[in-house]
Amino acid sequence: MNIFRFAGDMTHLISVLVLLLKIYATKSCSGISLKTQELYALVFLARYLDLFTDFISVYNTVMKIVFIMSSLSIVWCMRMHPMVRRSYDKELDTFRHYFLIAGCLLGALLVHEKFTFQEIFWAFSLYLEAVAILPQLVLLQRSGNVDNLTGQYVFFLGAYRALYILNWIYRYFTEKHFGRWISCISGLVQTALYGDFFYYYFISWKNNAKLQLPA
């Protein structure tokens, strides 16, 4: 464990807590893409298949459970909770995310570390996480003004993977057998997709103005 990875995990945890706060405090999920939340639930379920078979550490197991439970509960809330589901921007959240799932599954079948069930789902989860934010970014552009908590949620979600890139650089230089090209390349693509969001987020923070993404 290094400081970059720990900071990345904490930033990821903060993004989840900010989203839970927004939904429970405002009893609303306006501006949140259900499709991105479903993709993230799939990412965690596909990546943490080894939850019960490989014990790494208490921290690792606890965080995996937190991420799985929180992503599933957010999806459940947005679909089933009587008050929250009413505020879902159904007509704006129209990204065809099934194509993302199919594309990543195909990609994982073609490019993986080893042709085993667990490795293929692991690669699938990394490719899917790289593009999972797309429906959310499209929704932000369509819904015009972005409320603070939603903006902070997306910001922390993007920042966590950027910190993981620093972690991979650190591990590359400090560990002999460190070659995780699938993680690194997926992580770079993922962080790049946040590029323009980060730019407009910084502008809004500098001008102390409302976050506005150009349509």
């Binding site: 990875r5 995990d9 990821h12 080894d50 490989d54 790494i56 690792n60 965080m63 995996k64 991420f67 570390e113 080893k114 490795e119 692991w122 993981y164 972690n167 057998h177 070659g179 995780r180 993680s183």
Partner: peptide, 10 residues
């Protein structure tokens, strides 16, 4: 030989 990917990251 290269270790199988250590899945120690989240």
């Amino acid at each position: 030989d290269q270790l199988a990917n250590p899945k120690d990251e989240l």
